[in-house]
Structure formats: C-alpha cells, structure tokens
C-alpha cells in the first residue's frame, strides 16, 4: 500500500477488505456446513440399513425403502429429457440458424426469459389444471414430466443457443460452398460441433429435475409403489425430492429424510463437477 495515505482512507480500505473476508468466510462455512451436516446425518442411516436402497416401503411389514422413489426419479428424468431435448434444441436452432426477423427473435427470447422466472409452484398449478385435469393424464409421472418439460425448456434453449453461437461461421460457409442444403449443414456440421453445449444443458436439466418438488407435488403425486417405465408413467409416484418432503414434514421421519438428502447432495456435487468440467472444455476450445 502507498505510504502517506490519510487515516480515513486507510480505515475505509481496511473495513471494505474485512467485509469481503467476512462474507467469504460465511459463504464457505455455509457450503461446508450444508454438505457435511447432511452427509454426516444421512450416510450412517444408509450404512445402518442398506436394504432401504432396494426395498419397497411397507407399513405392514415395517420396512423402509426408497427404491420406488429412486426409480420414479429416473423415469421422470428420462421422460422429461426425451420430450424437452427436441423442443429446446429445435427452438435454439430456429433462433440461431433460421430466424431473420428480429422482432420474432425478441418475442421468443422474452417468452423464454419469462418462463425461467416463473416459480415452480405456479408450474405445479398450471400443470395440474392442464395435464392432470384438462388432458386427462390424472396424477401421474407423465403429467409431472410434461410440467417439467415446460419448466426446463428455457435452460436447454439457452445452453444450446450459446453453443450454436460459438460454432464458427466459416464451418457453415464451407458446407454451403460444397452445395449442402441448410438442413444438411445443421444436421451434419453445426449440431455435432456443439454437442458439448447440449450435453451441458441436459445435465443442468437433470440437476433441476432432481431438486424439483413444488411442481411435482400436484402433478406426479406421492405414491411409493414400484413400477416399470410405461406403467410408472401412467401412475402416481413420488420422486426422491418429493419423498424427502413427505417423510420430513408430514411423517416426521427424519432418518429416511436425511438418507435421501445425502443421496441428493452427492448427486448435486457430481452434477456440478461434470458441468464445470464440460464448461472448461468449451472454454479451452473457444480460446483456440
């Protein structure tokens, strides 16, 4: 620091620097606390009763089990991705490759931003009205997945769009010069180059589905029964997150709740590691 700074300035600098460090410590401590506390409370429950991972819960036989919830989560993730990928990637392709009218682009982007700002509880309500009641899906995983599709559309759109924008214009021009049509250029040149961005979008979506509860509560329901994929789609079922909520706040069963929480936290960390890694790959490629 420069000599001869007035005391007032020195004190001000010191205060600001301290505030930065205090805030930093708070955030680090919070993250560490959330991770460690949940893991320390949850993992012993899983180790003590590992059968819960492969059992269906039964009050009569007195067993706890979260296998149906795990499978429901997997089903919802698969169904949502199958539906949202073509829609989101297609919309992104339209925005970056086809759209010439700026007005249309603005409207679509405004709509997608609006969608990403709407709280999940409202998605839950509209999903209930639209899919459960109007379209007659009843309370089922299919209705839940459809609700999640609308919710995650902006995420897939945004990540794909960003990836599409990084594809060098010369690739397209080269392909056009060889006589390829627009669709062929997109299919064989543009899309394969931005597969990273699409994968990132998928993983972010998986993360959001894992964490979602409010939108699924009224659309996918609370049942804990084990089904196959197509049977499950037609029936009500709780995902891990919804099950966690039900166990903790309606049954007061904190042991299972923390076991589920530990699983979810581990998945969250893995998902974050993967997206960071993919992001770094993209950055490196763009740097070249």
């Amino acid at each position: 620091m420069i000599e001869g700074l007035s005391t007032k300035r020195k004190v001000w600098c010191l205060i600001m620097r301290t505030l930065c460090y205090i805030s930093l410590v708070i955030v680090v401590a919070l993250t560490a606390f959330m991770l460690l506390y949940v893991l320390f409370k949850g993992i012993p429950n899983i180790i003590e009763n590992p059968r819960m991972l492969i059992e269906t819960p039964s009050v009569r036989r007195g067993i706890d089990g979260i296998l149906p919830d795990i499978m429901n989560t997997v089903y919802v993730v698969i169904a949502t991705l199958i539906m949202v990928l073509p829609l989101g990637v297609g919309a992104a392709i339209y925005l970056t490759e086809y759209a010439r009218n700026r007005r249309v682009v603005e409207i679509i982007e405004f709509a997608s931003e609006t969608l990403s700002g709407i709280p999940s509880i409202i998605y839950g309500l509209v999903g209930m009205l639209l899919f459960v009641q109007l379209l007659g899906f009843r309370t089922s995983l299919l209705a839940g997945s459809c609700t999640l599709v609308i919710m995650n559309l902006p995420t897939i759109m945004r990540t794909t769009e960003e990836a599409l924008k990084t594809v060098p214009q010369s690739y397209r021009e080269g392909a056009f010069a060889l006589g390829a049509g627009k669709w062929r250029v997109i299919r064989t040149v543009v899309l394969p180059t931005c597969i990273n961005g699409i994968v990132t979008g998928c993983i972010l979506t998986v993360g959001r589905i894992l964490g979602e509860s409010a939108a699924l509560l009224f659309t996918a329901g609370l049942a804990h029964r084990l089904y196959g994929f197509f049977e499950g789609m037609a029936n009500s079922g709780a995902t891990l997150t919804v099950a966690l909520y039900v166990y903790a706040s309606e049954r007061g069963d904190f042991d299972i709740a923390y076991a589920i929480a530990a699983i979810l936290i581990i998945l969250t960390v893995i998902i974050n590691l993967i997206t960071t890694y993919l992001g770094r790959i993209m950055e490196r490629r763009n740097g070249q």
Binding site: L30, T31, V38, G211, S213, L244, A261, N272, T275
Partner: peptide, 15 residues
C-alpha cells in the same frame, strides 16, 4: 462451491 449451493434442492434447505 457456489454452484453446489445453487444446486442443493430446496427441500434440503427446508430439512
């Protein structure tokens, strides 16, 4: 860290 904090499901914060 911040990414993980953002990714933690809201019910876990509740729990």
């Amino acid at each position: 860290c911040v990414g993980v904090l953002a990714g933690i499901p809201s019910v876990i914060y509740g729990l």
